[in-house]
């Protein structure tokens, strides 16, 4: 091949544009809007992949975190909200109740990215722990007030076990149970996003590395 620039797709230039535009202003350009449905789909696709690979994690926030890192906390929050809304429409309205959790994940991932957390795997893992903590703490009041402290899931059974074995209060048990899943899932999701971001076309990663915001 003669010269590299000839063969480089012009399309990649857009991505830099989203990264810059959305982090500098609050308006969402068309490209950031177009990212959101794809990210919602990525949440589902990775959830399906995690299940197909029989991994003990959900990975169903990867799309939300991915967009938050690319296009900032506003886009991240929107992705989280829409993702849970869509799941609520398609599967069960109870998932509407957890929209705040998804919003918190999107917001924190976006802010962590602005602090540069997603530039390294270690940073992403630390951000993941923080996001996992926040997600668990957001979900507990919802579980307690709307569901009486238990959801019919693995987390609910862990909550009962914790109360029986350690005599914890309902709130404590619910918190520990929520943490037990989120604290593995979210760091793994964040590390995956950090690795995926490095695989995106070069011009974008350069832009992410040189701009702190």
């Amino acid at each position: 091949m003669r010269r590299t620039p000839d063969v480089v797709g012009l399309g990649r230039a857009f991505v830099c544009y989203v990264a810059v535009r959305t982090s500098s202003s609050h308006s969402l350009p068309t490209l950031a809007l177009a990212l959101i449905p794809r990210a919602v789909a990525l949440n589902l696709a990775l959830g399906a992949l995690a299940a197909a690979l029989k991994l003990p994690v959900y990975l169903d926030s990867v799309g939300t975190i991915f967009v938050a890192v690319l296009a900032g906390p506003v886009a991240g929050m929107l992705t989280g909200a829409v993702s849970n809304a869509v799941l609520g429409i398609l599967y069960s309205p109870q998932l509407f109740a957890f929209i705040p959790v998804a919003v918190v994940i999107g917001a924190l991932a976006g802010w962590a990215a602005r602090l540069g957390a997603f530039r390294s795997v270690v940073g992403a893992a630390i951000a993941g722990v923080a996001i996992g903590l926040a997600a668990a703490l957001t979900s507990v009041p919802i579980v307690i007030h709307l569901f009486g402290g238990l959801t019919p899931s693995g987390t609910g059974i862990i909550t009962i076990a914790l109360r029986m074995v350690f005599g914890m209060s309902l709130t404590h048990a619910a918190q520990v149970a929520a943490l037990s899943t989120d604290v593995i899932d979210k760091p793994l999701s964040c590390v995956l996003v950090a690795l995926l971001i490095t695989r995106l076309p070069a011009r974008l990663t350069e832009r992410l590395r040189t701009s702190p915001a």
């Binding site: 091949m1 590299t4 480089v8 797709g9 990649r12 695989r199 995106l200 011009r203």
Partner: peptide, 18 residues
């Protein structure tokens, strides 16, 4: 396939034909 000059390029940066 004539891509020997592009070893270090990110595949996502290539046009679809490449």
């Amino acid at each position: 396939v004539g891509l020997e000059g592009l070893h270090q390029v990110n595949p996502g940066d290539l046009v679809p034909q490449l």
